[in-house]
Design a protein around this nucleic acid. Structure first.
Lengths: 195, 195
DNA sequence: AGATAATGAACGATCGTTCGTTCATAACAT
DNA sequence: ATGTTATGAACGAACGATCGTTCATTATCT
């Protein structure tokens, strides 16, 4: 989609990796560019040969996150069995957002998107695509009679994402039962979709 | 509960109010103490006569948020009709978290609690109380046979909060249909609780 | 008088960014 | 092949701005 035409300079990826490490540890605003270049093992000035500024790094990271989401979206689209599709999505997406790195980074990007238009643009686009794909899967199910017709697909799509991401955030501070609650969420929602 | 013994200096509340305004507009870390004292119309040094530092202001705000939550918790406790209780909670809490001020401030506090132990302490305590009260209401319902016994009350409690707060956050960037989705969430969950 | 509230200059630290420079490599000209 | 020019990654000092906090001082009250 938005893949860069020319291959990305390896140093650029090193910077991104270092930035992610710093953002996870201290958060975006608490991280200084000197933290990043220190982590990356490069000089201060060199960072600006690869990125326009600090914000551009976070935008780049948000775009990468969007690419990772594309995997889910693609698999959400081939849709002969919406019930099974929804099943693995809940399983896999729960695993994805339960990785501390993804949960923390997602929270960081979401929070920043509330006030930073550049981030909001990338984040909003990614989010809309994911919700649309998920809602599309549910719509498919209602059309084929597998799911109840009176439920709003878009609402359930948001509900699923909110529930799983909320669980991911919660697991940061309490290493509680993971797969159990994940399955509980899954069966509650699938049960609610039953006609 | 944690009400201060001696009455609070009016100036202290003015500072808090100003800080809230600033935090809403720019976020916690992007707000400088000079922004706060400017908004409050006081001098820079005087702020430190009322608060130990910038962080103490956010802790104070988090405690206030906890008191507002106490209203919900109290009403969640008298529990002769769990179904009706859950109904108004969803309605009222949705209204609460759909106010931009509450949604933004909640997100700010949550994000900060991920790395700031002082905030995490206050926030975590408040959150646990709310979840426990909500789960208690559901448990009451299952015991009296109104709700299905196989659903996990704690999971559903988290699901309700995640769904409503997610909706509140979403309404910040898209002023979409409010009460419609709120009711859709409510009936989906109440339907899922049916025995 | 004595306590409390209020002030703003000043401090050291850190912020994100810009700048002039070096240097190894690549492209080109002869 | 040899000398010349062009390119851009890498560097770190330096910039002006802002950060949160402290402090000596003044004003306002009981």
């Amino acid at each position: 989609m938005s893949a860069e035409p020319q291959p990305i300079h390896p140093r650029k990826l090193e910077i991104v990796e270092a930035a992610v490490t710093c953002f996870l540890e201290k958060g975006y605003h608490q991280t200084g560019v000197r933290d990043i270049v220190g982590q990356a093992g490069i000089s201060l000035g060199n960072l600006y040969n690869h990125f326009k500024g600090k914000e551009a790094i976070l935008v780049f990271i948000a775009k990468i996150e969007g690419q990772e989401l594309s995997d889910f979206i693609d698999r959400l689209s081939d849709n002969d069995d919406p019930r099974a599709t929804l099943g693995w999505f809940i399983t896999d997406y729960a695993a994805y957002v339960s990785l501390p790195e993804n949960a923390l980074l997602g929270a960081e990007i979401l929070t920043e998107s509330l006030r930073n238009p550049a981030i909001a643009d990338v984040f909003g686009r990614n989010r809309s695509r994911l919700i649309a794909a998920l809602a599309g899967c549910i719509t498919q199910g209602t059309k084929s009679g597998i799911f109840a017709p009176q439920v709003d697909p878009h609402m359930v799509a948001c509900l699923i994402l909110d529930a799983l991401e909320g669980k991911g955030l919660r697991s940061l501070s309490s290493p509680s039962g993971d797969n159990l609650t994940r399955d509980a969420i899954g069966s509650f929602i699938l049960n609610g979709l039953k006609p």
